[in-house]
């Protein structure tokens, strides 16, 4: 196999650990159902450092999206705490920007007006907010599409509008829930490159929820692997691939080894999930 990584690119261990920004501390989420309480997320702990890119991966139904909603403040925590820069999260927090799996662009607004939305909420003057919005539109590579409506764009372009809109609010933490899940593989890889480029330009802290192993390894510094029901931490894998990374690395031996390692942990959980689904459909 063609190893794309040159020796000088091998990552050096960080001299100091990044300053912690997000702390998920023994978090549990229980849902009350007619059949009794169901534990969706069970005692998960994770610290994300400033400028770090961390992914959470797990089989379908393991509670990844529940964890996304807990960190985003859209769901209340049953036990434990989540803090951002020391401040406990009790609802949507101004330091956290969320990007959703489904298309969340506003169809009645043009690209530029979509991206300027959070700036409009801040009461920024029109001229200034449009100028800033234009910067973020260019950052996601949509220069020239400012006056288009989402219906005139492809799925990948719409997702980039969502990312630009979230970034325009300048969140400390970019929280993304399978943002490329609805896209084809090629668009997904190219968008992954785009996200990496933006993350490095802005030194943006990112927490990504995904079920795609390649995506998790390509983008992340660390990958938290979740168990299937209840969602617990199985392992946190350190991805010591050099940066800057691109999708060209996908064919390297090292990359393949990381993918195989993550899959080895995930396989058993995914099998449990599949058996459960088969039992449910009988």
């Amino acid at each position: 196999m063609n190893d794309m990584i040159r020796p000088e690119q091998i990552a050096q261990p960080p001299v100091t650990a990044p300053e912690p920004m997000l702390v998920i501390d023994h978090v549990t989420k229980r849902f009350e159902t007619p059949d009794g309480p169901v534990v969706a997320v069970d005692n998960i702990s994770l610290t994300v450092g400033r400028g770090e890119f961390v992914s959470i991966i797990g089989p379908s139904g393991c509670g990844k999206s529940t964890l996304f909603n807990l960190v985003g403040g859209l769901l209340s925590i049953s036990d434990g705490t989540i803090r951002i820069d020391g401040e406990a999260i009790n609802g949507p927090h101004k330091s956290i920007g969320m990007v959703f799996q489904e298309d969340a662009t506003f169809p009645w607004r043009t690209v530029i007006d979509n991206v300027a939305f959070p700036l409009e909420l801040q009461g920024m003057a029109k001229g200034e907010r449009l100028e800033r919005a234009r910067h973020f539109v260019s950052l996601v590579g949509l220069h020239g599409f400012e006056k288009r409506y989402p219906a005139e764009l492809s799925g990948g372009m719409r997702q980039r509008v969502s990312i630009a809109r979230t970034l325009a609010a300048e969140p400390k933490l970019l929280l993304m829930d399978e943002p490329f899940a609805a896209l084809d593989e090629q668009t997904r890889l190219l968008l992954g490159d785009k996200v990496l480029q933006i993350q490095q330009e802005l030194n943006q802290t990112v927490l990504l929820i995904t079920h795609n192993i390649t995506e998790a390894v390509q983008l992340s510094d660390r990958v938290l692997i979740m168990t299937y029901r209840p969602g617990r931490t199985k392992r946190i894998a350190l991805i010591e691939l050099p940066r800057p990374r691109t999708s060209e690395m996908l064919s390297s031996d090292t990359f393949g080894r990381y993918v195989a390692e993550v899959w080895a942990d995930l396989r058993e959980e995914a099998s449990r999930g599949m058996q459960d689904a088969e039992r449910g459909s009988r």
């Binding site: 403040g73 859209l74 949507p92 101004k94 956290i96 969320m98 298309d103 969340a104 969502s162």
Partner: peptide, 29 residues
């Protein structure tokens, strides 16, 4: 109105009034 739009509004910490006029109403127009 698609839940993703409502969640987007919530993530931007919109008030009930803002949620109606900036998201719900235009989406339902």
């Amino acid at each position: 109105v698609r839940p993703a739009l409502v969640d987007t509004g919530r993530s931007f910490r919109l008030s009930r009034w803002q949620m109606f006029w900036k998201i719900m109403f235009p989406a339902a127009l």
